[in-house]
Each structure stands twice: as C-alpha cells, then as structure tokens.
Amino acid sequence: MAETEGESLESWLNKATNPSNRQEDWEYIIGFCDQINKELEGPQIAVRLLAHKIQSPQEWEAVQALTVLEACMKNCGRRFHNEVGKFRFLNELIKVVSPKYLGDRVSEKVKATVIELLYSWTLALPEEAKIKDAYHMLKRQGIVQLDPAVPMDRTLIPSPPPRPKNP
C-alpha cells in the first residue's frame, strides 16, 4: 500500500505524469483527483499544475497530464469544471495547439488530444460557455478544421440520477 499521508497535489501529479512511468499509473491519477476533492482550493491549484505539465516538451509527460485532466473532469465534479471553463485555463490549452504560441513545438498526438477534449466538453458541458467560445475561436483560426470523432468514453455524459425506489 502506498504511503499517502502528507501527499500534495503537486507530488501526486509529479508521480502521475512522471516520464519514466512505463504506462499510465491510475493509483496516482486517482490519488490526484481525490486530493483535489479534499482541498478547498484544489481545482484552482490543480488546473495551474496541469497546464504546466500539458505544455511539457516531453510528449509522454504531456500525454499523461491530459489523461489526468480527463480523469479529473470525470471525478472532480462541478468545482473542477468551473475552473476548466475559465479562459485562464482554456488559454493554456489554446497555446498548445496554436502555431502562434507552442503549436509548432508540440507533437500532433498531444494537439489532437487537446482538440478532442475541448470538443467533447462543448458537447458534455454546454453550460460552460467559454469552452465553446475557445473551441469556436480555434475553428475560426483554421486550427480546427473538422470536429474530431469523440470516443464514447470521452463524452463525459453523466450517468442518470438513481431512480427513486418504489415502495
């Protein structure tokens, strides 16, 4: 059993995105999600840390960070969605795909994943208007030419609420 006492968001994320991981390590990914849910300012701190990792020049570190981001969107609820739905964070993703910023130095795989995630959130979180604004801006710029095919597990559609029990 891993020692979890005293772990910070940063230390969980460093482990979850460690370039020497041979594969995605879900113990650390879920540990990071749980830590976000425990901390008052978890989502604010987490998106800042994630943005930094997603912009890593090491593809594997960035890919793992995007997996963590997706896991957080599924497991950290509305507080986390609200932070992702701010231009402050969305701009960091835009930088990754835009040739005016980091786009020329980022792998096609990372850019495609960022675009898939953004598009999937426009479908799953229509109330987060800034996500749509950001995505449509990328389309206007020609950075996104066609909506990607989003795998079903990316759609973030919440499961229906439990039915009330009939007596």
């Binding site: 701010k86 231009f87 402050r88 969305l90 701009n91 835009i94 930088k95 835009s98 005016k100 910023y101 800034k130 604004d133 950001a134 801006m137 710029q141």
Partner: peptide, 15 residues
Amino acid sequence: LGEESEERDDHLLPM
C-alpha cells in the same frame, strides 16, 4: 465582488 472582478479579468487569448 472577488468573483466579479475575476470574471472581468478572464479573457480569451489574443490570436
């Protein structure tokens, strides 16, 4: 108030 000013400062990246 904090949220309002944060909203005002939150802009899409210039392209």
